[in-house]
Write a protein that binds this DNA or RNA. Sequence first.
DNA 1: TATGAATGAGTATTCATTCAT
DNA 2: AATGAATGAATACTCATTCAT
Lengths: 223, 223, 223, 223
Amino acid sequence: MASTRVKTTKTGGATQAERLQASSLQRREQQRENLRGAILAAAGELFLEQGYEAFSMRQVAERIGYSATTIYRYYEDKDDLLFAIVHEGFTEFQRELVAAAESAADPIERMVALGAAYVRFGMQNPVHYRLMFMQRLDFVFDQRKDEQQPMVGSFDVLQRAVASAMDAGAIERGDVERHSQVIWALVHGITSLALANGGRFGPDDVDRTMEIAMKMMVRGLRP
Amino acid sequence: MASTRVKTTKTGGATQAERLQASSLQRREQQRENLRGAILAAAGELFLEQGYEAFSMRQVAERIGYSATTIYRYYEDKDDLLFAIVHEGFTEFQRELVAAAESAADPIERMVALGAAYVRFGMQNPVHYRLMFMQRLDFVFDQRKDEQQPMVGSFDVLQRAVASAMDAGAIERGDVERHSQVIWALVHGITSLALANGGRFGPDDVDRTMEIAMKMMVRGLRP
Amino acid sequence: MASTRVKTTKTGGATQAERLQASSLQRREQQRENLRGAILAAAGELFLEQGYEAFSMRQVAERIGYSATTIYRYYEDKDDLLFAIVHEGFTEFQRELVAAAESAADPIERMVALGAAYVRFGMQNPVHYRLMFMQRLDFVFDQRKDEQQPMVGSFDVLQRAVASAMDAGAIERGDVERHSQVIWALVHGITSLALANGGRFGPDDVDRTMEIAMKMMVRGLRP
Amino acid sequence: MASTRVKTTKTGGATQAERLQASSLQRREQQRENLRGAILAAAGELFLEQGYEAFSMRQVAERIGYSATTIYRYYEDKDDLLFAIVHEGFTEFQRELVAAAESAADPIERMVALGAAYVRFGMQNPVHYRLMFMQRLDFVFDQRKDEQQPMVGSFDVLQRAVASAMDAGAIERGDVERHSQVIWALVHGITSLALANGGRFGPDDVDRTMEIAMKMMVRGLRP
DNA sequence: TATGAATGAGTATTCATTCAT
DNA sequence: AATGAATGAATACTCATTCAT
């Protein structure tokens, strides 16, 4: 019935019909984004609780109280939904890396800050990290998806830091991409081992390990 | 016997039951006593061919020509069997690390040799590496399971190398375990990124990346 | 508009809804009035490409860039749409039979020409033939649906040829309808076996078989 | 418990254990064949009631009161089960053709008897006929399955009849296989049209049509 | 006139595991 | 020591169709 429509607006301007249509469209868009978001959120939760293997479309559907079919209106298939989670994760990841990069003016300090931010993200979002960097690393390198590519963007942040450190003479000159890979490998290694080690590898352990690692990195790359 | 009847009534594509019956004849050649070993071997092969997700008890059973039930006599459940594969992988891994460690007298060279051996193992046994270090890293730290612990043993090899390098004054003194972790993290990071990157990360790339990494490590840890 | 937002948040593989939206722009070119015709054409194509089992309303809708719901405005349900395809097929079928009938003045030659045209139609429109004469033969005899009945019309062409052959004394007198049925059965049998046999029954085989069949028919019906 | 075992046998001869094992095996075989048969029967019924499209593994399972999974112990997949139905049909079909062939000594009469038997089978087993000759004609020509091939066997019966009619000079000499195809096409055409026509094509109609068809065939092939 | 949203029912198939023998 | 039988639960995904707007 029209009752719901009346609620939304009532003031002058355009034709009533036009206003109705416009707001109706907007509402639909809103609803669509809402549900899309709700699915994503539910998927994230489920994934967090049950892990990669147990994650299933049906359970996501049940969690939001919609039929399983409905999900397919919003996400093409399971991979598409998982990809969305990964995408979300990388967006946040990139944000944190950028913030870290901006937090330090000194090239060396910036690199260290980036390393710390990387590991911190992993420790604070273990489920996402696992999905992003361990279970579905294929998404990261899969160019076909995602034009904005926060995956690549994240790596770029690191690469730029390395490049400017080289420019500043803070570290020895060399292949920027490859040096970045080495640093990435180092922090990724620490993070994934820490995550796997679960209980026995507390925040303190990570900090102390990182201290050694960063020191090694800085001294090892010095000109 | 009635058994032939079954064959005649049903032709063409074989039923599960029939496939079992057929392979049952073939299997007598196989050792009876070390059926446990045969299962493990078959499981390893299957795992290598199909990967973690596709690995299934039924297929292992079919491969050795025993009923699925039989496997449960030798391995408690799927995880138990997977653990055995991991264990086997670590045994080989340890062997290669030990060989690498023995190949070099100089403490620094030994550490570099260990790093190279680590990465080489990953590149040459990608399926096992993924299982051991990425998919089921939990096994590594799961003390309850393994008494001989080649997992821990492998790490010890590294730790000893680090310790003796410190003793020899080749690298700065410090917490041996933690330094070892950093090195492990570095090579693990490189290996897992290389594996994930699949096509775009050929042997040459790995070599070049390792060159930088090892150089950074050596210089970074120098007293 | 918010519509662009949808596009940006979600990238890569398109959702159902998005694919619809995209093709919706494209479709304006299409005729509005004879949307019914456009649907039919798309359905025909799809059916031809995918076959009976894979044919689905959703895919038809997607192909013309309208929502699935829209189709239901023009066709009651799936069967109704399929019936329309069959109807179309029979219209063409009748056209070809009529042409064949008119191509020969001699009564016997005309019957042979009809037989040849029948089989040719089947070989050249295998998908439609299967639908019309094998999968949904029920449509042919379903009086309720069609008023113009090109199905019946096609049969009439044959019946008239038989009748005039009888009148001319070219074939023995007898029950026209029944004689026509026999001839229809003969050519239908040949066509359907040829279609089913797929690869092994090439055009040459059909020709040679038809030669025998037509000769048998002609001699068998001679007064 | 042993109680069930005791029931089976109790008389002398071999070791008790041996006897037990033997009868136990036999019983199992029996049971296996029973269930296999029960599935096939249920599948046939279901198929008969619901038709090809609606036929599903789940429903077959439900009908016999077993879990869906169980069926897969006896039939590899849906096609395998359908094939079994077809096979069963062709076995009966061949039996009836052979009986018809043996019922007549005269070559011409034999051919007519075969034609009649063919059509009769179709009219009396419409569902099987449809599956065998219309829906899954691919099974008939699919060499890979079924070594005994009652499909091919059935056709051989006809071919032999044609060959001996030629030898006896009852029909004109010519390509046996092709002549057989024509005859097959004729009776298949009649049968499938009769089946499709459903109500309006009663047994009498079929008889009268066949009368004309057979007469045409006999006269048309006469030397 | 057209549509977006939603659904319920259904599909074949696979899996790890248990149990009585 | 080994097995055949059986199962329950689960999976992703597709379809025709309805309804309010």
